[in-house]
């Protein structure tokens, strides 16, 4: 099966080779967990390693912030824009939604003109300001996501979680139901140190790794490492050692 590789060390293995083409992936996490970095890395590797031009649609951060943050990882986004392989569009959810629904809108025209195959939307959470009705929000985001797929784009969409440590926020908007792949990024406290955890919670149409993996953000971006060993309740943010007494008793035998 054809895969859209993220190029992120460790993540493509978890995804059994990469994302499925023309699907939408939600990356949910607290501030600073690396949602945008993951998305930028997906776009960067798409352009540089797989010759797949990309678009970044930002609802809050200025393009200059993307240039600067990308440069910290050695990714020259300005150069990629000059080469016509990347476009960073700053807009609002209301304008982007109507634009995508219209025939010949800016996103559609741009995607076709540059042959874009990937898009990062940072962040889908901003759609919440369009309506307070959960059903309508689900309807709006569903339409938006389908518009991206219609343009042949494989999308990574970030979602801001207000919870720094602990269980994921309870959704009353049904967003995870309308996306294809759902990746959770979490802070985890282990022995007075904060680590980062990544879990692929859902991947429609494909098997995927169910482990909760550690990941780091280094000078080269995100690197997904091995799974957390010897702890349980990782996603609670405050894991416990796995039944020490039980393990010891078992070993004594």
């Amino acid at each position: 099966m054809e895969r859209v590789k993220t190029g992120i060390p460790g993540l493509d293995e978890m995804l059994r080779g990469g994302l499925l083409p023309q699907t939408a992936t939600l990356v949910e996490g607290a501030p600073g967990t690396g949602k945008t970095t993951l998305g930028m890395q997906f776009i960067y590797h798409g352009i540089v390693d797989y010759d797949e031009p990309g678009i970044i649609l930002t609802f809050e951060q200025f393009p200059s912030q993307f240039y600067r943050d990308a440069a910290n990882f050695g990714w020259d986004f300005r150069k990629l824009e000059d080469e016509g392989k990347l476009r960073i569009i700053m807009s609002s959810p209301e304008v982007s939604l109507v634009d995508l629904q219209a025939v010949g809108g800016q996103i559609e025209a741009l995607a076709r003109e540059m042959g874009a195959r990937r898009i990062l939307v940072d962040s889908l959470s901003h759609f919440q300001r369009l309506t307070s009705d959960p059903l309508q929000l689900r309807h709006l985001t569903y339409s938006f996501v389908n518009g991206l797929k219609r343009e042949g784009l494989t999308a990574v969409l970030t979602w801001e979680s207000p919870v720094l440590l602990g269980e994921p926020a309870e959704y009353d908007v049904g967003i995870p139901f309308i996306i294809d792949t759902y990746i959770l990024l979490r802070y985890v406290e282990i022995e007075s140190a904060v680590h980062k955890a990544l879990l692929v919670l859902k991947m429609r149409g494909s098997d995927h790794d169910k482990d909760i993996r550690q990941f780091d953000i280094s000078g080269r971006g995100i690197e997904v490492r091995s799974k957390f060993e010897g702890h349980e309740g990782i996603m609670s943010g405050s894991p416990r050692r796995m039944a020490d007494s039980f393990v010891q008793a078992f070993i004594r035998r």
């Binding site: 476009r87 960073i88 700053m90 807009s91 609002s92 304008v95 800016q106």
Partner: peptide, 16 residues
């Protein structure tokens, strides 16, 4: 000039 691909309403541009 710094955001040449922006298309938005007056309200949002004012906010930016």
């Amino acid at each position: 000039g710094e955001n040449p691909h922006t298309t938005d309403t007056a309200e949002n541009i004012a906010r930016y």
